[in-house]
């Protein structure tokens, strides 16, 4: 069984990824919902919708934040 340059590229990437500490990877998994949470709490929602009720925007923000907080708890604990 021979290899091609595609195998060499794949092996190099795989070896590089294997050197990344798992503890750092866990932080990355935690950082994704965390960064999104900050964005959800600060972004403008529905600004281009003239019929949008501010209460609706607030509800969307709370719901999205709650979903992300659940993810942060899950990836923080497990």
């Amino acid at each position: 069984m021979t290899s091609t340059f595609l195998h060499d590229i794949g092996d190099a990437i795989r070896n590089a990824m294997a050197t990344v500490p798992l503890s750092l990877v866990r932080w990355v998994f935690l950082a994704i919902p965390l960064v999104l949470l900050v964005w959800v709490l600060t972004c403008r929602i529905g600004d281009d919708d003239e019929n949008r009720n501010p209460q609706q925007t607030r509800l969307l923000r709370i719901g999205a934040a709650l979903a992300l907080v659940l993810q942060i708890v899950i990836y923080g604990l497990l």
């Binding site: 994704i32 959800v40 979903a67 992300l68 659940l70 993810q71 990836y75």
Partner: peptide, 10 residues
């Protein structure tokens, strides 16, 4: 979880 929720929120 990570394979659904972030993409759904975005």
């Amino acid at each position: 979880w990570i394979g659904c929720v972030p993409a759904m929120i975005i």
